[in-house]
Amino acid sequence: MRKIYVIGIGAGDPDHLTLQAIKALNEADAFFILDKGEAKADLIRLRRDILDAHVAEGSYRLVEARDPERDRETSDYSPAVDDWRSRRADLYERFIADELGEDECGAFLVWGDPSLYDSTLAVLEEVLGRGAVAFDHVVVPGVSSVSALLARHRTVLNRVGRPVQITTGRRLAEGWPEDVDDVVVMLDARQAFTRHLDQDLYIYWGAYVGTEDEILVSGRLSEVSERIEELRAAARERKGWIMDTYLLRRP
């Protein structure tokens, strides 16, 4: 039976790879990569750098396809994501059926950790559910952007006896979560932290964490919010995209 590895490759630093991940990389016959366009060509380059650093040249195949576009303007968020994932499933199904022999091993390289805000596992489950192609799959955990962010700021995720919530900018914009003092925010395209300047919050913010473009800011939200907005806008203008994560903490 075909075998698929879903490998967490960390937040951007090639040194984030675990020994388990390196072992899995060297078992793969083919690596499946989705092209997100010229603006995000850096993401493919970083994947290639990882393969060059840890896998013998000529021992694998690269299979690339253009990632389907997701409707980011619609107010119906969940149906738009479901449609996008189904179109991704079409690609993954073709990858596995057409590009992988019955006794071969393929791999998807996932930023951070495959269990945290990534669609690869859900898409593969949809492919399996269709029943057109059979395969076994193994998940290799990686260093998440959350772990990398907190390590770079030399702080912890949780405090004794207190819960932590990981959420999106979309949800934070709707209001502060109940009974939580520590909130990690991902996928915040609209800088929802600016809606909470009236609260006494501390922020640990980072963009492109683990890469050569890394930017870090920490401090009282009311004092550093404008600086983060300026840095974020400049970085997005320079690179054409941004990946940032932050922790908001009540005293």
Rank of each mutant, 00 (worst) to 15 (best):
D13C: 05
Y208H: 07
V63I: 13
R66G: 10
R190P: 01
L157F: 05
A173L: 13
D15R: 13
K36H: 08
G161L: 09
M243S: 06
K36I: 01
S119Y: 06
T168C: 09
R190F: 12
L157K: 06
G112P: 01
Y117M: 07
D13I: 05
G219Y: 15
D113H: 07
A30H: 11
S86P: 05
A173R: 11
R159T: 10
E226Y: 05
K239W: 06
V183F: 08
L247S: 00
D71F: 09
A28M: 03
S144R: 09
K36E: 09
E178I: 04
L128I: 13
S144Y: 06
D83C: 13
H196T: 01
E102A: 14
E226H: 13
R66D: 11
I242L: 12
L124E: 08
R236H: 15
E57P: 02
R162C: 07
R45K: 11
G10D: 11
D15Q: 13
S59L: 04
I7P: 07
L187C: 06
E69A: 13
S147E: 12
S147W: 00
L62D: 07
D82G: 06
Y5R: 01
A207E: 05
A148L: 11
L247V: 00
Y60H: 05
Q199D: 15
P14M: 06
L109V: 01
T155G: 14
D67S: 12
L201G: 01
A173V: 05
D42L: 09
G129T: 02
S218P: 01
F32E: 02
D15I: 02
D83R: 13
E226D: 14
G12P: 02
W176D: 12
A192W: 00
V146W: 05
R238Y: 03
R195E: 08
E212I: 12
P141L: 09
Y92W: 15
H196E: 00
E214G: 10
S222C: 03
M186L: 06
L172P: 00
R152M: 07
S222Q: 06
I22S: 03
Y5S: 15
A97C: 11
E64A: 02
R47A: 15
V140T: 04
A122N: 14
